[in-house]
Design a protein around this nucleic acid. Structure first.
Length: 611
RNA sequence: GCGCCUGUAGCUCAGUCGGAUAGAGCAGGAGCCUUCUAAGCUCUUGGUCGGGGGUUCGAGUCCCUCCAGGCGCACCA
């Protein structure tokens, strides 16, 4: 399993013909080019100092600046004239950037096509290989970030509906931590409420029920055992009104702290958490019981939430309940929508609990950023919770609180998976199907693998395929759950990335342990250029993920990079190349392998040595 | 009724404060393994970017409006 930092190993020291300054942060070429253009704009038009030069990757050159199109009007020039003037302050024959830029061309209505020198590209490759963490900036350093994700219900199986929150939240935790954030993971378990009366009462009346993992026969799924208990108890609850009454009495006993009842509750929670732990381990999810802060954790804080909102004048009595009416949202009757702090029967619901979570994370965890990775259908709920927290002055403008929403998982018929209904696809069954498929494919492609390694690779590929399928599409859209597509191993899939990585490792094994020497004076094949430029953008991609909280941008980046490598692989022999191409290409291989391994690691996906 | 989200190739999806002929994958068609792993590569077929207005040098992207679908809106969480 990859560690929190993506599992990047040690790399041999490299020998540089022309040694650049080795620093932890290697500024990306895009940023360097942008700085050069910005500087040229400032020297040509002092009033435009600090204007955005709008430097992007380009199909027509290495980069392009679109700044002239928008900026020219500020100095009463035509865009093309502006661009031509700007070009004169850049590049060969112009300014002082001959080292960075080899070509500057005005094109179209005022685009500035910018190409960097081979020299500076090789230097970037060498610098990233030499730098810790591939030179990625620590842009999130010092920011304490709480991430709430996964949140399964005790005594129920994790199913496909939990997959998005779990996988997306985990990847965000990894990316933000890698960029230096102080990440605190929170697993908001559904570990409290009326179902527990039913479960505990059922156990009390059926002492012979076998639901602990230790009691199960070999081969039975320990994960499902508490779920079976839940189904049995539910069936009894629905069929027997007297049992239902006894269950309700049991809920009261739990809430009032009855020793035997609480002990039974703890037992059920602990057993379920062990089951979750098995799935998390298999999926490579970082969550541990230490990250659990479920509904029960907030019990002792709920009274204070109600009291303080009352004292603040925000809460009021309504129909026997205590509520806070929204200042911005209205319901079908035209009246403000309430958050229900205390129900008419005196109980608390999830409105109160989530107010307690945000308060705890602000006041006790001292968070600077709080992320709730939760289904998009909860959007209004979180809007009201955040609004109330602001009105109560718990939440200041300096803290970033976001509902990281994701679309609903639909079944093959386009209907949402129901949490409460049975017959959802369990995660274990899904993973087993993916791994089985992978086992077949791996066995065909690579028959000489022994059984143990075949099993290991199939697990890595199958689990990776499922996770990549969840991560590679944009968050907010609903999506149809399709097992066949998920375990498909061709095209834009996790397996493609893993496979690209293994091809590189194969080359590196063939090269032995030689140190890599980069000759920055050497020329570059077009495929080498494209690969080097792609590799240089790793930090930019990660920074974008941290800002947008969209891991699919990292997937897109890695796929593009793997494709660039594949082009290079087809066009540029490595082991048989003469110097200096041999060393330079080996350096590209090393950096690509490291970038893919690191990037996959930040998605929570392993990068195996062989497949 | 109000609010939020979505609408891009047959299917699944990308599309970077608005940028150059709208890109991938899958599926369909034609090729490529004496050469570092063919889970790959090359070529090819396929588009009124839901419709209509507007903003400007330029709109899939921003604004307005309509259409279609999904979700949410008091005591389940």
């Amino acid at each position: 399993m990859a560690d929190a930092d993506g599992g990047l190993g040690e790399w041999p020291a490299i020998d540089l013909r022309r040694s650049p300054t080795v620093s932890e942060h290697v500024e990306s070429l895009r940023d360097r080019v942008a700085a050069a253009v910005s500087s040229a704009i400032g020297s040509a038009w002092p009033e435009l100092t600090d204007a955005d030069p709008v430097v992007r990757r380009s199909e027509h050159a290495d980069f392009q600046s679109n700044g002239a199109l928008a900026l020219s009007r500020h100095v009463a020039a035509r865009p093309a004239e502006f661009a031509a003037e700007l070009a004169g302050h850049l590049g060969p024959g112009g300014g002082t950037e001959t080292e960075l830029l080899r070509d500057v061309q005005v094109s179209g209505p005022g685009f500035l096509n910018l190409s960097v020198t081979d020299h500076v590209l090789w230097e970037q490759v060498a610098a990233r290989l030499a730098a810790p963490r591939l030179g990625v900036p620590r842009g999130e350093a010092g920011r304490r970030t709480v991430i709430d994700y996964s949140a399964p219900n005790i005594a129920k199986d994790l199913h496909v509906g939990h997959l998005r929150s779990t996988v997306i939240g985990d990847s965000l935790a990894r990316v933000l931590a890698h960029l230096g954030a102080d990440v605190i993971r929170q697993n908001h378990l559904g570990d409290w409420g009326t179902p527990f009366g039913m479960l505990i009462q059922y156990l009390d009346e059926h002492p012979d029920a076998t639901w602990h993992r230790a009691e199960l026969a070999d081969g039975a799924s320990a994960v499902s055992a508490p779920n079976q208990l839940y189904r049995d108890a539910r069936a009894a609850f629905d069929a027997d009104p007297e049992f239902a009454d006894r269950s309700r009495t049991r809920v009261v006993a739990l809430q009032s702290g009855d020793d035997a009842t609480v002990a039974a509750w703890r037992d059920i929670v602990a057993e379920s958490e062990r089951g979750f732990g098995e799935i998390y381990a298999r999926l490579g999810i970082l969550l541990t019981p230490a990250d659990s802060a479920g509904e029960s954790f907030y019990n002792s804080r709920l009274d204070a939430v109600v009291r303080d909102l009352r004292d603040a004048g925000l809460a009021e009595d309504s129909d026997g309940a205590v509520v806070v009416f929204s200042a911005s949202a209205t319901g079908p009757d035209g009246r403000p929508i309430p958050l229900i702090l205390r129900k008419r029967d005196g109980g608390y619901g999830y409105d109160t609990t989530d107010l307690a979570t945000i308060r705890y994370r602000l006041e006790e965890l001292r968070a600077g950023r709080i992320l709730y990775v939760v289904d998009a259908r909860q959007a209004l709920h979180f809007r009201l919770v955040f609004e109330t927290a602001r009105r109560a002055s718990w939440l200041a403008d300096t803290v970033d609180v976001e509902h990281v929403a994701f679309g609903t998982v639909l079944d093959a018929d386009g209907r949402p998976f129901r949490t409460r209904a049975g017959d959802t696809v369990g995660l274990t069954a899904l993973l087993d199907a993916a791994v089985e498929r992978a086992r077949t494919v791996v066995g065909e492609k690579n028959p000489e693998l022994d059984t143990a390694e075949l099993d290991r690779i199939a697990e890595t590929a199958g689990v990776g395929a499922v996770k990549y399928a969840e991560l590679s599409t944009s968050r907010v859209k609903d999506y149809a759950f399709d097992v066949d597509r998920m375990v498909s191993f061709s095209g834009d899939t996790g397996v493609y990335l893993q496979y690209a990585h293994t091809r590189i490792r194969s080359i590196l094994r063939g090269a032995g342990d030689d140190g890599v020497s980069v000759d920055a004076a050497a020329g570059m094949h077009p495929a080498e250029r494209a690969l080097a430029i792609a590799l240089d953008g790793f930090g930019d991609a990660l920074t974008e993920v941290a800002a947008t909280l969209e891991p699919h941008r990292l997937c897109t980046y890695l796929y593009d990079t793997a494709r660039a490598f594949t082009d290079f692989y087809e066009a540029c022999p490595v082991l048989t190349a003469p110097p200096p191409a041999h060393g330079n290409r080996l350096a590209l291989c090393r950096l690509t392998a490291a970038t893919l391994q690191q990037g996959l690691g930040l998605l929570g996906i392993e990068a195996p040595e062989r497949m």
